[in-house]
Design a protein around this nucleic acid. Structure first.
Lengths: 232, 232
DNA sequence: CCAGGCAAGTTAACTCTTTCACAAAGATTA
DNA sequence: TAATCTTTGTGAAAGAGTTAACTTGCCTGG
């Protein structure tokens, strides 16, 4: 029975959205209660982990029964700050950027893309999937006017850092960077980097790891970025 | 002078592609040597971490100087199994799938998209960004013929599990899943799940907590169940 | 109301990862 | 050659995260 919530580990934070996703799925199938074991299978971990993770948020399971799905969804949404919708802009509406503009899953989950920005004159002033595309010069004005929670960077790598700075300067509150480069901004602004090539390369390692798992050594001669908090 | 079986930590594996990315970038700018401190800044960690990570692969720094970039790129590429090109297919060429088809960065990094698959008759038989789109029924035949290292799933969530099973059955060696659902296949097949909504939600948490910034990438890999990839 | 079953909550052991701090070794200077 | 400087490589300590195993509490059947 704890009133004071201890600090929630980062590893736990990373799993909470996965629980949420699974719970919503279960709920839509008519289920109303779920056990830690069932939730664990869903995301590939074990039941102790699930109980531990959820215990950081409070006690809302029923011993002998499990967790009431609806209640747990509510608690997780609350905890993750999903209670109110988030406004999102996309800078760089090339292939990936426009794919994001068109993905309905975000809106369903409370992330509304309110504007796109690009430097290509042939895109500026157009509308893509119901979202207006503006020139970069308008960034500041538009952000000030509507308030933006998340700025997505889908520009080429060379432009990413510059864009990140413009976003911060304009007042965007957090950044999701898809450009294959690490960006560095004030450590007050949460930044997440998602590099798809990196995912491929990690997979490549596990693909070939049979031979790679034995290493010979020694017979001759092996986020706001910038030295701030390192997170996995 | 030791010949040791030493397990490379997963956390290290996840960082190696980031070092590689930075090194390639430095090299293209004409630099030839880099220190652990410099590499650390690049990915937002500290020099001890970098040295430790690299020490798992061998000793190829020069004390008093740093690391020879070209050599380090070579070693990392070798270690990550990037020495030979990987063949990739994309199942589901909707918005995200076709964005991936068109991204040149993959080919540059040795990941060649050799075919796309879809169920939509209006796409089948067409070519998108130089890649032929086939019907799902052809999956097995084509995979058998050309050999496929990585299968990307960019279908709707409801189809993802079924597609994953077809991929495995056809002989695809690893899977990168973008559908917002966890897929479960044989433990022998490495799987990585990338859910963009999850990234948004994690960001949402840090946003609402007004907490210090996050940095790195999300995450964890899953291998079927509770992660089997370690060799003891 | 009690006994038995079941699953959450919790503690502590354990494992994994990061960081510290220093010895080792190549480079440079005198 | 020796002294000094610099940066790697590493063992050990510290810190995070995971898992096992135990305790608590709810529910059901008798």
């Amino acid at each position: 029975m704890k009133m004071v919530r201890k600090k929630v580990p980062k590893a736990t934070i990373n799993r909470l959205p996965l629980y949420l996703r699974g719970l919503v799925n279960f709920y839509s199938k008519g289920e109303r209660v779920v056990s830690s074991t069932r939730l664990a299978e869903l995301i590939g971990t074990n039941s102790a982990q699930v109980r531990k993770d959820l215990s950081f948020l409070g006690e809302f399971g029923i011993r002998g029964i499990g967790y009431e799905i609806e209640k747990l969804i509510e608690e997780l949404s609350q905890f993750l700050g999903l209670a109110q919708a988030k406004k999102v802009i996309v800078v760089g509406v090339g292939r990936l950027g426009s794919a994001l503009l068109g993905y309905n899953g975000f809106k369903e989950r409370g992330f509304e893309i309110v504007a796109g920005f690009d430097v290509d004159p042939s895109k500026i002033g157009k509308e893509m999937n119901g979202v207006n595309i503006y020139k970069m010069d308008s960034l500041r004005k538009i952000v000030k006017k509507i308030g933006v929670d998340i700025g997505i960077i889908t520009t080429p790598a060379q432009k990413a850092q510059e864009v990140a700075e413009k976003l911060v300067e304009a007042g965007v509150k957090s950044i999701l960077n898809f450009a294959p480069v690490s960006i560095e901004v004030s450590d007050k602004i949460p930044v997440r980097n998602v590099d798809l090539s990196v995912e491929f390369q990690i997979l490549s390692y596990y693909l070939s790891k049979g031979e790679k798992s034995i290493i010979k050594r020694g017979n001759e001669k092996r986020f706001g970025e910038g030295g701030k908090p390192s997170i996995k």
